[in-house]
């Protein structure tokens, strides 16, 4: 008997498909920048998105990826969605605000992953189970980010908290909406590259 897909599986799969569609269209834009107008890029991404959700054997391709990566954080989806919509023309530059946002991500990852994986007796992942102090901290961060002209940071926190509150994914833990390992790796690499560029720039002066 055919079974209706769970809503949280649909959101999880769509998130993966969106991420892969965005990355694919970015790759295509980089390889053939003149051939791919903004409209064509979006159409291509749309086609890839649909293809990733069509069954291939027992599961759609996005489901195989989902088995490896889990559901992507709302922050990841926000960044990849913006990348898809704005294209490489809005490729991030090395302004201090961007680096501050990346550092915030890195600090969060350092607070979360080592403790969750058992480096210390204390488990920071527990805060994500509706710990009011954690929510308070995030509210302060979101407001500060909004005031300090870091709208993406504020938006990512707000959307993450909202998605968690409504049960968008199967996870009951707020951390899973704010952060994921792939995003943390991206933040680390992006930070290191930005620092390298700054160093090179100051050396060449």
């Amino acid at each position: 008997m055919a079974q209706l897909i769970e809503l949280t599986d649909l959101t999880g799969l769509c998130g993966i498909a969106l991420a892969l569609a965005s990355l694919s269209s970015l790759a295509l834009s980089t390889l053939a920048p003149s051939a791919l107008t903004a409209a064509r890029r979006l159409w291509a991404a749309g086609a890839i998105f649909v293809l990733l959700l069509l069954p291939l054997g027992e599961l759609p391709p996005a489901a195989y990826v989902r088995g490896m990566t889990g559901d992507l954080s709302i922050t990841s989806l926000l960044l990849l969605g913006l990348l898809l919509v704005r294209g490489t023309h809005a490729w991030p530059t090395d302004n201090p605000r961007r680096i501050a946002a990346l550092l915030l991500l890195l600090v969060a990852a350092c607070v979360l992953y080592p403790l969750a994986l058992g480096a210390l007796p204390y488990d920071s992942y527990r805060w994500g189970y509706a710990e009011p102090l954690f929510l308070g901290l995030l509210l302060a961060l979101a407001l500060a980010a909004a005031l300090l002209r870091l709208p993406l940071v504020a938006l990512a926190i707000a959307l993450g908290v909202l998605a968690w509150a409504v049960g968008w994914y199967e996870s009951e833990n707020l951390w899973d909406y704010l952060l994921d390992p792939l995003l943390s790796i991206y933040a680390l690499i992006a930070c290191l590259l930005a620092i390298l560029r700054q160093l090179r720039a100051s050396v060449s002066r």
Partner: peptide, 13 residues
């Protein structure tokens, strides 16, 4: 949006 998100969040908490 921040207000909406955190009202929902604190309600869940």
């Amino acid at each position: 949006l921040i207000l909406l998100a955190f009202v929902a969040g604190f309600y869940k908490a």
